[in-house]
C-alpha cells in the first residue's frame, strides 16, 4: 500500500525533499511515527495534516494511494 507524502515550507528542508513515498502505512499515526523516527526534528515541528486535501484531526485510515500533506504555519508578511 503506497502513500504519497507532500511536505510544505520548512518541513521539506527537514526531510530533504518536497515529496516522499511511503509503503505499508495503514493510518496517519503509523505514517507519522515512521516519519518522526526518521526525522526527529519533524516531531518537534508544528504542522497540520491533510489526507487527500482534507485537514484531519486525530488518526485517520489511509486508503490505497492516499496523499498526505504536512503544512506548517508561516508567519512572514
Amino acid at each position: 500500500m503506497k502513500t504519497r507524502v507532500l511536505l510544505f515550507g520548512q518541513l521539506a528542508e527537514i526531510t530533504g525533499s518536497k515529496e516522499l513515498e511511503m509503503e505499508g502505512c495503514a493510518d496517519t499515526a503509523a505514517l507519522l511515527s515512521i516519519l518522526h523516527e526518521q526525522f526527529p526534528v519533524l516531531a518537534q515541528s508544528k504542522y497540520v495534516v491533510a489526507v487527500n486535501q482534507e485537514m484531519i484531526s486525530g488518526n485517520k485510515n489511509l486508503p490505497e494511494n492516499s496523499i498526505v500533506a504536512l503544512l506548517p504555519p508561516f508567519s512572514g508578511g
Binding site: 515550507g9 503544512l71 504555519p73 508561516f74 508567519s75 508578511g77
Partner: peptide
C-alpha cells in the same frame, strides 16, 4: 489571511 515564507505562501 495570508502569510509567506521563502518561496511559499498561504
Amino acid at each position: 489571511y495570508a502569510a509567506v515564507s521563502r518561496f511559499e505562501g498561504q
